[in-house]
Design a protein around this nucleic acid. Structure first.
Length: 379
RNA sequence: UGGGCUAUGGCCAAGCGGUAAGGCAACGGUUUUUGGUACCGUCAUUCCCAGGUUCGAAUCCUGGUAGCCCAG
């Protein structure tokens, strides 16, 4: 992680992706203090200007300016709306059309932040690109970069970074990986950064705090249908399969039935019949899978992998990892992943991310979930 | 139109004369760089309607109304 700057009188240039939040602000500050030639760049990926001409990107860019000036670094803005639309948003819509649940942030990191943006940074003469991700990169003597979980286990964001390649990781710095959120806030406060107490942003960047359902509705046609149990009993109607994901509870609107008052969950989708399959109880058997099939499998290092190996894995963000056995098909970059214990709500479109101890070794996209020999009707 | 049973918030459902449990749903919030999950909070001045008994009733009585079941 440390880079030797003393060899040359020319300081190593690092371009920091500044979002206008605390994390990236402190990232820039720390790198500046470490002696790098820091350049702050704000990425504009989405135009969210509303009827009143208010745009959160504009507001965020103002914060970037305040912070950059405070730290004493130059800052710029770069527009990737086109790239974002083509690489992330179109994928996002397509996945939803297919009844799957995409993870746009994984795609954004793979295609925008650590590709388009990285290329741009390199063109500015930077050696590295840095972001405020809670993850670590450790470099071997031979130059291999290893992606490690952030030390703040509660904030670890390697899940979203699983698709990064060795070439990308080689050019990346994550200064916050060593600390926890509290420290970051404290540093920002002590340095008097304008973003010190700014609320953490959550939600898909282009949707922001707005209602997810109405956002999707404005891009994809809604096709209402029935909510049915595995026995075919109609429980309610749904507004469109894309508004629901496996394991979801909210929004089903199914009340008590007399037999049991347990909540209901989405346990499957039937695209042909346009039916949402629902089941009662958090531990509904159809919610548990024994293995899955994934595609677009990639690894963070170029290390040769055996066809079959054991490791740990996560199927969703902020979930503790579980033991798995991976069966790779190197021909088409797919894999069958078996779980040591049945896993709940495995969702097509989401990422399966592999870990070897602290190291995030790679991952893929979940396509199909299975329960023993049966394919779960998840899409 | 003989007999029996039940009517409590959007849905289930406690309550059995002492001043409306709980769950589900919904809504709001917390957590969260996806969606989701989880967690917290809010949700019947009123118990099908009308009378009556009582200091006091959702709880007892009478009469309606509605639904269910068994007999036709």
């Amino acid at each position: 992680m440390m880079v030797n700057n003393t060899m040359s009188d020319k300081k190593t240039r690092v371009v920091v992706g500044m979002s206008g939040g605390v994390d990236s602000s402190v990232t820039a500050l720390l790198l500046k203090e470490q002696g790098y030639d820091v350049v702050g760049v704000f990425m504009k990926n989405w135009d969210d200007t509303d009827e009143n001409g208010v745009c959160t990107a504009t507001e965020d860019y103002k914060d970037v300016a305040l912070v950059a000036n405070k730290i004493g670094i130059p800052y710029y803005s770069i527009n990737f709306e086109k790239e974002y639309w083509n690489k992330v948003f179109s994928y996002f819509l397509e996945e939803y059309e297919n009844g799957r649940t995409p993870n746009p942030d994984v795609m954004c990191n793979k295609e925008i932040k650590f590709k388009a943006f990285l290329d741009y940074a390199l063109s500015l003469g930077a050696e590295y690109v840095a972001t405020g991700h809670y993850a670590r990169v450790r470099r071997d003597e031979d130059g291999t970069a290893h992606l490690l979980k952030g030390l703040d286990g509660n904030k670890d964001q390697t899940y979203f970074l699983n698709q990064l390649s060795q070439d990308q990781l080689a050019k990346v710095l994550f200064p916050l990986g060593e600390m926890d959120k509290k420290e970051v806030r404290k540093i920002a406060e002590e340095a008097g950064l304008a973003t010190a107490n700014k609320k953490d942003s959550t939600g898909i960047c282009f949707i922001g705090e707005k209602d997810f359902k109405s956002f999707l509705m404005s891009y994809l046609p809604a096709q209402p249908g029935d909510m049915v149990t595995t026995d075919g009993e109609v429980m309610n109607t749904h507004d469109g399969l894309m508004y629901y994901t496996i394991g979801q509870r909210k929004g089903l609107g199914i009340g008590g039935t007399g037999e049991s008052n347990d909540p209901w969950f989405v346990i499957g989708k039937d695209l042909e019949k346009n039916e949402l399959i629902v089941g009662q109880g958090y531990h509904h058997p159809n919610l548990y899978a024994t293995h899955l099939k994934a595609s677009d499998f990639s690894f963070t290092t170029s290390e040769e992998r055996p066809e079959t190996f054991k490791c740990r894995a996560k199927f969703r963000y902020r979930q503790s990892d579980v033991g798995v056995t991976v069966h790779l098909n190197k021909e088409d970059s797919t894999a069958i992943v078996e779980f040591d214990e049945p896993a709940r709500a495995i969702t097509p479109g989401q990422a399966i991310v592999l870990y070897d101890g602290e190291e995030c070794i790679g991952g893929g996209t979940i396509d199909v979930a299975y329960k023993e020999t049966n394919q779960l009707q998840y899409v």
